[in-house]
Every structure is written in structure tokens, then in C-alpha cells.
Amino acid sequence: MRKHMTAAALTAATALVLAACGSAEPGDTGDGGDGGDGGGETLTIGIKYDQPGLGLQKGADYVGFDVDVARYVADKLGYGEDQLEFVEAVSANRETMLQNGDVDMIFATYSITDDRKEVVEFAGPYFVAGQDLLVAANDDSITGPEDLEGKNLCSVTGSTSAERIKEEYAEGVELVERPGYSECVSALASGAVDAVTTDDIILAGLAAAQEDPTTFKVVGNPFSEENYGVGLPQGSTDLCEEINTAITEMIEDGTWEELVATHTDGTGYVANEELNPPEPDACA
């Protein structure tokens, strides 16, 4: 009996050792080079599924600026395309997904704020957006939020961006809510509203998604600053530094500029040159 128990114990111990040797944190690929096999691990990345130009699910594929930045960073961490798993990261659930270990990282127009930094860690920023306005291409009457007095402004239900304009720039603006930005764009196309508001690169992505990308234009007068970061679980300092190195390389080798141009093609959009390309912050 004692011999059988000893053998069983050794077998169990060996299994535990092998399991420990096989485990790895995201970024600890063990292959020593870019574009490797990621040590056999899968990297789970949270993205938006419904933001044209940034994070959009198209059948079995995922496209957009955020998605391509995620792919670039993952490659630098040593993960091949077949090791990436993209999952939807709804804005309200992002912190919970990171805290519960549902994702390894999030690229989803995730603005870095002090409140969020209390519960998650951020790498980046990899882009600095600003709240702006989308209007008809032939509308020269709206050049900033102050021009919205007496006009109809659309934003998504629950967003604070339109309220901010009403409180700070145009008290007489009429606010119109829609369940999604695609519905706001449809209202703009029909003339039911005069403008749509959210972050400038999101607006550019919406314009680029039209059959004719010159139908609308981003006013180009941003009035806020939103630093898009890579959401990570707390305590991911080493991984944060690896991601920041990848972001810096992406900017220096010209890929960042190419991706911005690709996903806003035809709209005339230009990223705010005073804020972009950004310099990643030091990791905590």
C-alpha cells in the first residue's frame, strides 16, 4: 500500500512541476524574438466590436486602428496571429474583465483616468484623441461647439459628451440621443440633426465607413484630451514596460502613422499634431 501511495504522490508532484513550468505571463514568451510562438500561450485581448475605424467585428475578422495596434504589440511580445483571441470589451465592463482575468489586456478607446488607475494599470498612451464634431461636408456654419446654439446635436444614450457641450459651450443646443453612433450618423445624413459628437478619431472612423467617405467631415477643433491606453491588470508593471517599448517602436518605424491614415482614409482627418504621436507614460 505504501509503495502505491509513494508512486502516486511522485506522479502528482511531477504533474505539478510540469504545469508550473508550462505556465507563463503575457509577454513572457520564452522565444527571445518578435513574432514568435508566444510560448504556446493564447493572448486574450479586449476590443470594441462596434466602432468603425477602431474596433469592428466583420464576420470572423476584426478590423480597426485599435485592433491593428493590438496585433503589432502582440507580435512584439512574441505572439503569432493564431495565438490571439479577441473578445468584446463593452465600456462598462472593462475594469471587471481585467480584475476577473477574463482578458490579458484591453485596446478599446480606453481613456486613462486617475479613477481607473485606482483599479487597473495602463500602458501607453498609444493615441491622444479629443472630443470633436462630425457634420455634413458642405456645412461651414459649425466650426466648434460654440456654433451649436439652437442646433440639434446627437450622441449615444448615456454619453456625457453632449451634456458637456450644453453645460460649457452652447446652452441652447438641443440634445438628441440614439442607442449607437451609427444611428446618429443616419440622423445626420437625413438632416434630423446638425452634428454628432464624440472623440475625433471615432468620428473619423464613422465617416470612413460610409460608401462615400467625403459625405461628412470632422470639424477638426477638439476641445478635450483623451489618452487611449492599454488596460492591464494591476501589478503588470513588467508587461506595461514591454508594451510601452512596442508602442515606441511602432511610432518610430512609421507603422503608427500608417495605421491612422489607413483607418481614416478619404475623410481628410488629421490627428492633433500637438498631442500625437504620443510618448508613453512611465509604468507604475
Rank of each mutant, 00 (worst) to 15 (best):
T197R: 05
T197K: 02
Y49E: 13
V120A: 06
M250Y: 07
E168Y: 09
F127D: 07
T42R: 05
A208M: 01
V193W: 08
Y228A: 12
S161P: 01
M250R: 12
S190L: 10
E242M: 10
K166F: 05
A187R: 03
Y62K: 00
Y72G: 03
V219K: 03
A12L: 09
G36Y: 06
A209L: 02
L10E: 05
L43Y: 12
V63D: 14
G220H: 04
L239H: 10
M97I: 05
S182K: 05
G46F: 05
N93H: 03
L239R: 09
A19I: 07
E242S: 13
D114F: 00
D199K: 04
R164V: 15
I142G: 12
A137W: 00
D61F: 02
I247Q: 13
D104W: 01
C283T: 14
E41L: 09
A208K: 01
T42N: 05
G235Q: 04
G172T: 13
T113F: 01
E81T: 14
E225N: 06
R2Y: 08
V90C: 02
S190Q: 13
R164H: 13
V196I: 00
F65E: 10
Q131P: 06
T255D: 11
G144D: 14
L56W: 07
K151G: 04
F223Y: 08
A136F: 04
G158M: 10
S91N: 05
D75C: 06
L84Q: 07
A7W: 13
A7V: 15
T160W: 06
D132M: 04
D132P: 02
G191S: 06
G180H: 06
L18A: 11
G235C: 04
P52Q: 03
N93F: 04
K48R: 07
A13F: 13
G55D: 14
L188G: 06
E274D: 08
D66W: 11
